[in-house]
Design a protein around this nucleic acid. Structure first.
Length: 948
RNA sequence: GCCUGGGUGGCGGAAUUGGCAUACGCGCAGGACUUAAAAUCCUGUGGUCGCAUAGACCGUGAGGGUCCGAGUCCCUCCUCAGGCACCA
């Protein structure tokens, strides 16, 4: 062992040793042998989102795996049976893109990456413990169970064939992922991408919408659904599910008897009852509707010989402010629009031209583009009118792309006085904007500016029988009223849509279905699983899915009737693969089902699930969905698969930008490991920022933790108890001056003179580190250990200094100077160093550092202290409650700190004594000067004297 | 736009949840050791005014409020980052 901290000399050695000693062997094997799985230690399942097989491991992977590794190691030392596995998410588009671009088969590309990444992962020194049984989602052994799950869903009606809008390249004849669209054009051929309805497989996740909602725990523990997940996820998912209670209102669309739309003049000539006269502020009883008050002329008009009802349009709304509804807007894909386009319903000629143009234009835009609000509202008039039920007036029907077909009913009623979006639309197209709700200060004037719009709250006005009723109550009344009148139906809608899972791609799980000319869609029988992905296909897009190019694979016999049939050439979304993988981790080679129920019962739910915040809405929700489905199958007996979720941030490049090859700001972990060693990189990733934060890599700050490890390393040289130094300092290199300088802490023999203060500090540090690891605050845990080393060094220096002074008087300085010049100064002085910590104390400190710096601590543990068994199998130290003799109490006068009192612990209870002590202080006296004052004393914390 | 989370020294960030703001680290300045540099070690380091290791005042995005006491709680505003389903 050399004095200088040179991690390269031992890090690889220990990793090798740990492997041969089976230190991180998977606990799964022993599970098999155990008679009862529940016996023995408590389990702790630490899970990190499985990495995608992109090739190079980057420093972000280190970040996401190192922090959980520290928790896992800590838990193991604390007596848990820890399961900390890994696997690879191996299917997906990038593999196929690489294939297209570089002419490598996706499988070869992926497997090569698995190999490279595994090597890199292993230099991280994590205790990941399933390398022999690593799960790779592109192996048939794995995706076989994807297919099994799909079939189970199909059996239960949860998987179905449906249509959805997709990005479509008309030239390549294929569906494109968003990432394959550049400036609205296909990445390969540059053709303009359009939205096209494509038939595909869906999972009925909407059936689980209510179960996926996060409900606050009534006990107010902060937990929801019995588990501890970030609020960000709970709120985000609930918004995404978007449960809304409202009403579907059906409007009658009218035209002339001959079908021509120009009826406005006729309508105008009809007499309408004037509504909207305020009926005082008298409250209306909810229960009694003014059944007969609204005898407006609608029904009469509808009976008019010149007008007929040609269609109905249903609008969904949560806020039926219907006295203020002055128009309807349809999505460009709305069936009514289709009827106009196909001339089933004839609109005015000039409008017809405009409508065709408008719809064409909006088809080209992706939904995402359409959602970007705040741009100018656009739209065309259909030339038709609907009748507002409560005002009896005809209101124009428009088409606009701000209305999305798959939200609600694809048609909205415009109430411009109480909705900003409707207001803008009405303003732009000159549609009336009546006020039906008072403003925050009771305003009743006309609505002219955006600021006048009232979206929530207020009291109804100009609304006939609703006048004077508060907004939300009035909405409920309106809904009840419409329901009673048969004009609408109360409905619950969800923003969540069914999950489209089929991809017209090669590199994924084949959909285990067969299209038979006689029987239609037929499941592949369970016994025939897996439907293996054929190696030979043409994965250049040519108007059909790549799998369809392998005739041999495509042609099968129908399992039902034996007729010639075709396989489904589509593959499953990779989110399907990752929606249940942690169950497979538990029994990676199990062949009687997706997983071994017995093991799953023992090891799950997952105790902590680490991952990126980018999966707030996608992956984690699908994973929860699958868990609930598994519960319904009787495979698990809980609703939530992870008891706790922690989401990490991103390590940015040194320039503060996201790391990317093109920017040249990528930190390659291999490089930094070569420079500082694994332990330093691990420590730095913990120390640089909180786990949830996002921030830049710093080449400077990493040197700080390296220095820290260096100091720890050197400190432990004192405990070099196998007396190497007795035989001279042959291990000290003469050229290495810094080592020699350090050697003033390096005595030939030592005695212990325990320092109470330092031992109290050690216990505090153990406590702090223990708490911080539990809370995943690794940065402050390291800070605490740094503080401890600072204190330790300081005391060592004092001991050293004291002794030197007493022995050599004023010549200390020269002595020290001389020491640094000689190669074996200690022999010369023959100093006996007093150590403030015993070996067992020192070991405790080493233990709490070991999850962070596993290699260095192991080296010291075994080589300095001569331990036979790994430090990582040792027991986590327990902090002792040590009562410190004195406590510092700040004394404030009028809230400003004026002095610090050092008070004996026993006196803390006694307010009088503490106050008396404070009053003796000159610094405090000065501010009191015989004035009257009030005493506020918080025991053991602070004393505040308030002068009036 | 909506939602979520932030704004604290030159920088990354602490602060037992209302009790000494700036722990720990980086950087910087000075010193020791070196022919020199690197490395290492020591000292200092929020701002303003002081001969100052005397002291005073000001300081946690802005403004107001509650309180003996506010980075922390309340109100109004400014601002930044992330998310908003065929992306791993």
């Amino acid at each position: 062992m050399t004095i200088k901290y040179q991690p390269k000399e031992f890090e690889a050695k220990w990793r090798e040793k740990w492997k041969t000693e089976g230190l991180y062997g998977t606990p799964l094997r022993s599970l098999n042998q155990r008679a009862t799985l529940g016996a023995g230690k408590k389990k702790f399942y630490t899970l990190v989102e499985l990495p995608y097989t992109s090739g190079d491991l980057h420093v972000g992977h280190w970040f996401s795996f190192t922090i959980p590794d520290i928790l896992a190691r800590f838990k193991r030392m604390s007596g848990f049976n820890v399961f900390y596995p890994i696997g690879y998410d191996a299917f997906g588009l990038p593999a196929e893109n690489a294939a297209i671009k570089h002419n490598i088969h996706p499988k070869d590309w992926t497997l090569k990456n698995v190999e490279v990444m595994t090597k890199q992962f292993q230099t991280m020194g994590t205790m990941l413990n399933n390398w022999e049984d690593v799960v790779v989602t592109c192996f048939p052994e794995y995706y076989r169970w994807n297919q099994w799950i799909f079939l189970k869903m199909y059996e239960r009606g949860l998987a179905y064939r449906g249509k959805a809008l997709s990005n479509w390249c008309p030239s390549c004849q294929t569906v494109l992922a968003n990432e394959n669209i550049e400036m609205g054009k296909c990445w390969r051929c540059g053709t303009e991408v359009v939205q096209k309805e494509v038939e595909q497989w869906f999972l009925r996740i909407t059936k689980y919408a209510d179960r996926l909602l996060w409900a606050r725990n009534p006990q107010g523990s902060g937990n929801a659904n019995g588990v501890d997940w970030p609020k960000q996820v709970q709120v985000g998912q609930n918004n995404w599910i978007g449960k809304k209670e409202g009403i579907n209102i059906t409007y009658k669309v009218i035209s002339n008897k001959d079908g021509s739309p120009e009826i406005l003049s006729q309508l105008n000539s009809l007499s309408f009852r004037t509504l909207g006269q305020s009926k005082s502020d008298k409250k209306v009883n909810r229960k009694s509707f003014p059944q007969d008050q609204l005898k407006h002329p609608v029904s009469k008009n509808l009976g008019s010989p010149s007008i007929k009802v040609i269609d109905e349009i249903t609008c969904f709304t949560t806020t039926p402010v219907n006295f203020g509804a002055t128009f309807l807007v349809l999505a460009p894909e709305h069936p009514f629009v289709k009827k106009i386009l196909t001339s089933k319903i004839k609109s005015d000629k000039t409008n017809f031209e405009k409508i065709i143009k408008y719809v064409e234009h909006s088809n080209k835009m992706t939904e995402e583009q359409r959602k970007i609000a705040e741009k100018d509202k656009t739209g065309v008039f259909t030339s038709f009118y609907a009748i507002n039920h409560v005002t009896g007036k005809p209101i124009p029907i428009w088409i606009s792309d701000f209305v999305l077909m798959n939200v609600g009913t694809g048609a909205v009623q415009g109430c411009p006085g109480h909705d900003y979006r409707d207001f803008e639309f009405a303003k732009k197209f000159g549609i009336p904007i009546p006020r039906v709700v008072t403003g925050p200060n009771g305003e009743k004037g006309p609505i002219e500016k955006k600021e006048d719009v009232v979206e929530h709250g207020g009291v109804m006005v100009n609304s006939d029988f609703l006048n004077g009723i508060p907004f939300s109550e009035a909405m409920q009344m309106t809904m009840d009223y419409f329901k009673e009148k048969g004009w609408g139906k109360r409905v619950v809608t969800y923003h969540l849509r069914d999950w489209s899972i089929s991809r017209q791609r090669y590199w994924g799980t084949p959909v285990p279905m067969i299209n038979c000319p006689n029987c239609g869609i037929v499941s592949v029988p369970e016994k025939d699983l897996p439907v293996e992905l054929p190696y030979v296909v043409d994965f250049m897009p040519k108007g059909k899915p790549p799998l369809a190019t392998n005739e041999k694979w495509m042609n099968v016999k129908c399992p039902n009737c034996g007729a010639k049939a075709k396989r489904d050439p589509e593959t499953l979304d990779t989110f399907f693969d990752s929606a249940w993988y942690w169950y497979r981790y538990v029994s990676p080679h199990y062949s009687n089902g997706p997983f071994d129920k017995l093991r799953v019962n023992h090891l799950t739910p997952v105790d902590v699930y680490f991952g990126g915040s980018e999966h707030t809405l996608g992956h984690t929700m699908y994973a929860r969905f699958f868990t609930k489905f598994f519960r319904d199958l009787g495979l698990v007996d809980y609703e939530e698969f992870a008891l706790k979720r922690i989401q990490h941030g991103v390590v940015l490049g040194p320039d503060g930008n996201r790391m990317s090859k093109s920017k040249g700001n990528v930190i390659n972990p291999d490089d930094v490991v070569a420079e500082y060693g694994t332990d330093t990189v691990r420590m730095y990733l913990c120390f640089m920022m909180p786990y949830e934060a996002t921030g830049p890599w710093s080449d400077k700050t990493i040197q700080g933790v390296h220095r820290f490890l260096n100091r720890v390393w050197r400190m432990f040289q004192i405990y070099q108890i196998n007396q190497k130094t007795e035989n001279g300092s042959q291990n000290i290199r003469k050229s290495d001056k810094s080592d020699i300088q350090f050697s003033r802490f390096h005595p030939p023999s030592s005695s212990f003179s325990e320092n109470k203060q330092l031992i109290a500090k050690l216990n505090k540090t153990i406590q702090k580190v223990t708490n911080d690891i539990e809370k995943i605050k690794m940065n402050t845990a390291i800070a605490a250990m740094m503080e401890f080393i600072n204190a330790w060094e300081e005391i060592m220096q004092k001991l050293e200094g004291k002794r030197l002074r007493s022995q050599f008087g004023e010549e200390v300085k020269n002595e020290v100077k001389e020491k640094t010049h000689t190669s074996s100064p200690l022999n010369k002085t023959g100093i006996q160093t007093q150590l403030p910590l015993t070996i067992s104390h020192a070991k405790d400190f080493l233990k709490i550092l070991s999850p962070f710096a596993p290699h260095m601590t192991e080296e010291i543990w075994r080589n300095v202290f001569g331990e036979k068994e790994s430090i990582h199998l040792s027991e986590w130290p327990k902090a002792k409650e040590l009562v410190t003799e004195t406590v510092t109490i700040p004394v404030q006068v009028n809230g400003k700190v004026r002095d610090l009192l050092i008070v004996n612990s026993e006196l803390l209870i006694d307010e009088k004594k503490v106050t008396d002590l404070a009053l003796k202080s000159e610094k405090v006296k000065k501010y009191l000067e015989g004035k009257k004052y009030k005493i506020i004393y918080v025991k053991g914390k602070i004393l505040n004297l308030v002068v009036s």
